[in-house]
Design a protein around this nucleic acid. Sequence first.
DNA 1: GCCTGTTGATTGACTGATCAATCAACGTCG
DNA 2: CGACGTTGATTGATCAGTCAATCAACAGGC
Lengths: 187, 187
Amino acid sequence: MRRKALIAAAIDAIHAHGMAQVTMGEIARRAGVSPALAHHYFGGKDQLLLATMRHLLTELGDGIQARLALAAGPEERISAIIRGNFAACQFRPAVISAWLAFYVQAQTDPEARRLLRVYTKRLESNLVHALASLTTRERSIEIAETTAALIDGLWIRQSLADGGADPEKAVAAVEDSVRRALGRARS
Amino acid sequence: MRRKALIAAAIDAIHAHGMAQVTMGEIARRAGVSPALAHHYFGGKDQLLLATMRHLLTELGDGIQARLALAAGPEERISAIIRGNFAACQFRPAVISAWLAFYVQAQTDPEARRLLRVYTKRLESNLVHALASLTTRERSIEIAETTAALIDGLWIRQSLADGGADPEKAVAAVEDSVRRALGRARS
DNA sequence: GCCTGTTGATTGACTGATCAATCAACGTCG
DNA sequence: CGACGTTGATTGATCAGTCAATCAACAGGC
């Protein structure tokens, strides 16, 4: 309850003021509580931000898992992974800002780095698994790495676009890239 | 002289401590001067960081231009752009950290956003131009956007890799992606 | 050749503001 | 009454930016 509200407030605060200038007071104010309460629940600024990162990670992971459970066949599994990464709840400006900030954090903070690698590995592992029956194992790994990078890159560029997000276009671009990597014509 | 040293120190400091905790004192210490001097030359923290960003932008742009000048034919021009983006001087951990930090900065700072968009537009423009004679104009734009996103994504993932950078592999992946997008088999 | 005024580079010390973290107090529900 | 959630006030530290003072280089007058 309070934790959820504080995490949501942290995401908004990061988007509004940037990770560099985000303060416990600002987060608490957005959550409608006193700064002291944020310390009470999370024990410190660093741990609150790490908890926010974990929240985004599990939210993304759960979304992808839910879509994977409904997928039939390799092509649908691949689409499920791609669409999960561009799902509406993830593809919001505030969320993208937070992800970017965590990438920066991971450059110096070992725990953030570890968490981000969990996401990286899981994404690539999911892709390799879905690609397994469509090509060789070695080629699966290559395609998975390139696809994962393309997804991350589209996220970043989305953060610079002025207009509203266009997840459909991003999904189409990634799916087309995978099809071509598999040597299949555009459907 | 002093400006160059301070900018280089700023890049290292960002890599070592993260944009959030970088201080004028730390940058000045790495440059071997007093904190007051950094103010004397740049007028403030924000302007020093923006100058650092401009330095990276022009360094990257000049490298690509130099490679483009030596390129003959569309394929070589495309390769020149790709290789310029993964040139050794750019593909260092400290530089990647700085770029990431500037992407975050661009979420809230209009001037940083403007500068980053200059890079984005120039990269896509270069790619579209190089692709012009190989496909339709509309398809050129699509391929350029996807390729630019792939380059950014490979940069980011490079920042998480433990081992040393592998620019050759990244270049090969992007070139292969462009070839497939153009409907050509791997050479 | 030497004194001297000037200019720009450089510094240490200081200040004002900000923020994370702490703690004692307060309400409130059981 | 007692446990829990919550808060306002406080503290100690940190940092950006300022300022007066020092230093080095140099030019010109004598």
